[in-house]
Structure formats: C-alpha cells, structure tokens
Design a protein around this nucleic acid. Structure first.
Lengths: 322, 322
DNA sequence: TTGAAAGCGGTACCAG
DNA sequence: CTGGTACCGCTTTCAA
C-alpha cells in the first residue's frame, strides 16, 4: 500500500492489524490510518493467506437443486454465525458444478473448511484432495455420508416414516408416495420412500411410488388414473407437490380426505391456506449457530475422527386432509 | 508442488498451463502430469492471481432478501454462463452483509467484477473502493442505480403499471396495493406502487397502499376490515401474498372477483392452482448468457462509460380472479 | 528443452 | 519504536 504514508509496509501491517508485540507511536498510527482511509486501502486477502499458509475461508458448495425455505434459512443462519466467528464464507458454484472438476475448483481457493451438499458427487478421493490442499474440515450435508468427511445427516427416511406412521394411525393401508420426476431430487426422495416402507413393514399396508413432474398437466394425468390405483392415502415429497396433486384430485372429483388422504411436507404457509387444510410433516433443523461451532471445532482440532451428526427431526402436523 | 517429479516448478507451470511459447518434451509432460495426478496437486489460486496482478473471480453479492424463483434461475444461469467463460463465480455474504464493511470484505478478495443486488447499500464511494482494488466492472442489479456502477435495472414500476392498467381496463377504480410488511422488500415494492399510481394518473382511479405481513393472522386482520376499505381490486407484491389474501377474503365471505378483483405477480405454478385461478403479472428477464457477455465485455473494456440496461419486461396474464 | 531468479502483497522476525 | 528482509506459491523472463 501507500508506503507513501511515509513509513514502511511492515509498519502499515503492524498498525492495521493492531499487532500488540510491536509498539507503534500514536502519531505514526494516525498517519497510517489516515493514508489508508484516503486511498481506500483494503488488504489483499490472497497475499495474506499466501503468507500465513492458511485462510479463514469456509466454502459452501451451493445447492445443485432448489431447496426448501427451511434449508435456505438454515444455511443463511450458518453463514451468518460463521461470519461472526471471523470466517469468510463464500458460496461456490451452482447447478452443474459436480464431481472432480468441482473439487478441483474448490481446492484452488484453499478454503480452511468445505461444506458440500449431497448432489455434488463428492467422493472419498475428493475429500482427500481437499484435505491435502489445506482444508482442515470437510463436511457433507445431506442424506448420504462420504468416507473421510464429517456428515451432517439429513435423514429424510424419518420424514417418510413419520408420514406413513401418521397415515397408518388414521387407518389408511394403501399409500402412494409422490416423488419428483425431476432428477437430482431423488437423493432426498429415495430415503423418504424407504422410510415409508419401514413404517409399513409388518402392518400389511402397501406403499406405491408415484413419480410426478412439477406441472399441472402431469398432476392431471396422475389424477386421471387415480381410482385405478386404488390408494386411500398419499404422501408427497413436499407441500407444493401436495398442493399440485390435491388440486388435480379435487378437479377429478376425488374427495379429500374421505376417499384419499393427502399429506405434504415442510409445513409451508401454503399448507394452512389450502382447503381442506393440508396435513404435513414439519421438519426441524438445529440452529446454524450450533453447526457453526461444530465447524469451528473441527477447524481447530483437525485430527478429530470423522463423525456423523443427525440434524433432522420430523413431526406430523395433522390438519384436515388426513 | 512436487518438483520431486524431477523437474523445476517452472516446468510444472508450463505443462499445466499448456504454455505454448515454451516447448516441453512429451516425456517430461507425462512425468509432470503423472506426478500431479498422484499427489492430487491443485494450483493455488491466490498465488496465481497475486503474481498475475488480477484474478478471474466474479463476486456476486448474494441477496439480502428471499428472491423469486425467476431471479433465482436468472442468477443461476448467469453464474453458469460466466463459468463457461472461465470465470470463477463466487457468492459472498447473505442477509446482514451491507454497507461499508461488505464492500471492504468484497474488495479483499480482489474480484475482477462485482455484481451487487440492491439492498447491500452500495454507494458511489463503495464503487470507487472496489475499482481501486482492481474490479474492472461493478454492476448493480435492482431498481436503483449507483454512480460509477453499471446498472442492471429491474424496474418494478413496470410491474405495478402493468397490473394497474389491467385492473383499470377491467373497470376497477379503487385499487389496493398489498406491499410486504417485512422490511428490505420495499426496494421492490415502492416502485411497484409508484407504477400503479402512474397508470392510474388522470383516470380518477385511486391506489391505496396496504402493508401485509406474510402470516395468516395478518391476512385475516386485513380481510376483516376489507369492506370498510371500499376497494374493488387489489394487486399484491407477488402470487404468495395474493394467495394469502385471497384465502382470507374468501373466508371472510368476500367474493372474488365479483366484489374484489385479486391480482398477483410472478406467475408461479400456484397461481394456476388457486380457485378462482389467479390473474398475475408475468415477469421476464433476459438470458443469463446475454448478461454474462455484458460482464465479459466490461471486464475487457474497463474504460467504458457506465450504462444502464433495462432487464425487466412485464405482461398481464388474465385468469379468473380479475 | 529446461532451470534460475525476480517479484506479486502481505507478515514476522531481527537489527538498528 | 521502526525499517530491512525473507518468505508464502506461482508465472514469466532470461540464460544455460
């Protein structure tokens, strides 16, 4: 920077970082600060971390699929909490940033921690590359775990289990499972169905998987053959698909819940606005603050054995549609 | 890196960057590549850009408020398109990352281009800091323009204008404008109301602003005093608020559209699922590809005068609620 | 065809 | 108290 403030860059560094081991006179400090202000000087993060040998950057690989508002706000909280701990949080990539290339791109930035959602195709080898490149913590967020990385598990089978249990308790025995036809979402929907099957096990109830695209036409088609399916209940991937299907069923004359019970997930505001009011599965995640503290611990104690943490809790919310 | 591949690091650099001015023998190339593979070597982006004096990083300041799916996908496209042009796109920050501190944080990363949405409080001085720190292009995205930055204008007054014109054409004269009570959204909602007023000008029609929080209770309260308001139409910030209000109005016995016409915005899938089907304003944005090319041009020709580009186009979609 | 060396912007020692 | 200097990992020029 402007060592045209009349001092050496070492002095500038001392002043701007408040280095306590070095005593700098007040007048000098003022001169330096004034010059920095004047020039709009901002230190060069790359140079700093090059010298330091490590950065304070936490890289969050941004989601490859649209996320529920719950996840959005969870990730926002996490980000804010990490920010308060003096980490520089950066979101990298988007749809189509997966696999080996993604890992290399992340590693180039030399983050001190990486948080990747399922869907980026992170594998044990990728984790190793990241660690060798200086990442002291690699975490995955999603229903799967990856060797070498800490897992923040969102076990969506709990959601399916919770829903199916609720429907069984309401006396339903032939249950449809609406899963998005859109690819990329099956990481979440597959465990969901599995959870439903687990809940149905031994009860004699059946679970039938029903792919559904996120369009009116697809919903109308599904509703059109609804009575042939002979189902008395359906649980959908989330409230939006539930709305979509319920609308189509009603248009088809299928009575909800008399003929078919409908249950959604995520407890969106809209679930309370539908008629009948939509029963749903409320999903809860821990506070971003708590996760930020975990990340911080992992960064400080890089030797720690990789653990798995269960994040997700699900509870059924009964309204009028079941 | 492993100059333990038996060569100097200069050679490594040549090989991995395919430097054409230097001719490296095939055997050497192979040895280098093998070693890189073996060690999981990934170059250090910071060191590279430090040496080069500039980076290929495009920093997108991530939104401070939840965005409509349309914007989400627009930004996703832009990001993908920039990625294809060999830029490293990074999203920085989130809610609460505003003002001077935000600008400094961005500048530390020495991005070659910055794209900030309205709501970060970027001011001309902030733009200057960014430019001095090496940003060759600073762009704002939103309804406001900032001195020194290129403006990608999303003029939401067009949305209001379009909606009001539609309602006027349907013979409505006392029009409510539902704006989110949540702060941070007024950057968008204020121009919207202004556009409505502009359309109503000289027609004798009136526009009344109605703040509404995104909750059932708030909607019920508003619906409770609806008849006192004496409105025959209402346009809402978006389809979600429209759904919220329409539900409350119906529960209150207000007939839609007979007594009150309701119009939303964004043309979400849900607008077609409501009964009556919701009229809405469809918003269109240019392709992310086109914007990416603009960014690229600006980066290459940093001298260019700052321009403003109008991004947003609005068209009314009439359904059953108006 | 390859290597040695300088230098990008900071930080941290050590000498003055 | 302050300045000189080495060094972080990489690119690039120049010399061998």
């Amino acid at each position: 920077m402007a060592r045209l403030a009349g001092v050496s860059r070492a002095t500038v560094s001392y002043v701007l970082n408040n280095t306590s081991t070095m005593r700098i006179s007040e007048p000098t400090r003022r001169r330096v600060r004034a010059a920095a202000e004047e020039l709009g000087y901002v230190p060069h993060a790359a140079a700093r971390s090059l010298r330091a040998g490590h950065s304070r950057m936490v890289l969050m690989a941004s989601p490859t699929v649209p996320l529920s508002p719950l996840y959005e706000s969870f990730l926002g909280d996490l980000q804010a909490a990490l920010g308060r701990m003096e980490y520089t949080v950066v979101q990298y990539g988007g749809p189509g940033c997966t696999g080996d290339a993604a890992v290399r791109a992340w590693a180039e930035l030399r983050p001190v921690a990486v948080l990747a959602q399922s869907g980026h195709g992170l594998d044990p080898q990728g984790v190793a590359v990241l660690k060798r490149s200086g990442a002291r913590a690699v975490l995955t967020l999603g229903p799967e775990r990856v060797d070498g990385a800490h897992a923040l598990l969102t076990d969506h089978s709990l959601v399916g289990q919770c829903a199916a249990a609720h429907l069984l308790a309401r006396g339903r025995t032939r249950i449809g499972a609406v899963v998005p036809a859109e690819r990329g979402l099956d990481v979440f929907s597959r465990p969901m169905v599995e959870g439903m099957r687990r809940a149905a096990e031994g009860t004699g109830a059946e679970v039938a998987e029903l792919p559904l695209a996120h369009t009116e036409e697809a919903a109308a088609r599904l509703a059109g053959r609804w009575r042939d399916l002979g189902l008395d209940a359906v649980f959908t991937y989330n409230d939006e698909y539930a709305m979509l299907l319920m609308r189509a069923l009603q248009d088809e004359g299928v009575r909800v819940p008399a003929e078919t019970a409908v249950m959604g997930a995520d407890d969106l505001l809209l679930s309370r606005l539908l008629r009948p009011r939509l029963s749903t599965v409320r999903i809860e995640l821990p506070s971003g603050q708590a996760l930020a503290e975990l990340v911080d611990r992992l960064v400080r104690a890089p030797g720690a054995r990789t653990e798995a943490h269960d994040l997700l809790a699900a509870t059924a919310v009964r309204r009028e549609s079941t």
